[in-house]
Amino acid sequence: MDMREVFVTTAEEVLADPRTTIVLADISAAAFAPAAARYPGRVVNVGIREQLMVGVAGGLALTGQRPIVHSYAPFLVERAYEQIKLDLDHQGVGAVLVSVGASYDRAAAGRTHLGPADVALIDTLRDWTVHVPGHPDEVPGLLRDLVCGRDSAYLRLSTQANARAYPEAGELRVVRDAGPGAPLLVAVGPLLDAALAAVADRPVTVAYTHRPRPFDTAGLRALAGIEVILVEPYLAGTSARVVGAALADRPHRLLALGVGRSDLRRYGTPEDHDRWHGLDAAGLRRSVDAFLTPARAAA
């Protein structure tokens, strides 16, 4: 099962709690049809109306329900951003937002269905938890925990995944240890495998997380030497401010890799976009090597 299928299955489980309500805007409505039949009134499909989807989530939360809101990343986070800001945060209530599509899962669909800025936008808000699982098996535990809480969270699902799961990776988890003082590469979610391949023969420590917010700054400070490399599957630099603040009292250098800002106006596959954004193993290696090669003194 891919992450979306695991999400639907797990969401059906958590619907056993009468507080849980799923709010949809047609996306995945067919997959949720059995759950809707079993729990009428707690699987709400508002049609193709994203402002209403988030507004409804806010109203549900005001009555004490725990809404799970789901759509494609750009429709969920970008289309109704003011509803997220006002109908959830400003009302002092929370919801669990679950997106599919990630940065370019639907590459052939073009710009309208790409969501590289989602995490950066959520990051303009306070106290949100952001989970970016790297494997379908990481999804059930994350969703169950989020639904138990009351605060707001964003769970970003993707068709891209690593070969194996790391279910407990909220805090930075060292996957490859190159020893004290080695450059630290932090890979977020599904980019771990490419990052590992990129530095396989380089003296670089690799740590993994599927929880970029709140970022494990204590773990970062414990692991970081001088050089820190961020590899994020969404907009490049999204976590740069967090890393910069965490290491403000120390000399350090930061390379923040991720999806570029430009609209490439190209289709193809997610793997093509990985390559075009320099996020495949070869591209990551080029960037890391350039970053770690001592710069020549200017003539």
């Binding site: 009468p18 309500t21 009134g41 707690r42 709400v44 402002q51 209403l52 988030v54 507004g55 409804v56 989530a57 806010g58 109203g59 549900l60 939360a61 005001l62 009555t63 004490g64 329900q65 809404p67 003011e82 509803q83 006002l86 109908d87 400003h90 009302q91 002092g92």
Partner: peptide, 30 residues
């Protein structure tokens, strides 16, 4: 969050009815 008896914070227009629909759905679900 500041005024007892006030159900929603408003100001930006067009938010109340969506919140009201969600509130009505929540009451119905309960």
């Amino acid at each position: 969050l500041l005024v007892p008896g006030v159900e929603i914070g408003s100001g930006s227009l067009g938010h109340g009815l969506g919140l009201g629909v969600g509130t009505a759905l929540g009451l119905r679900a309960q």
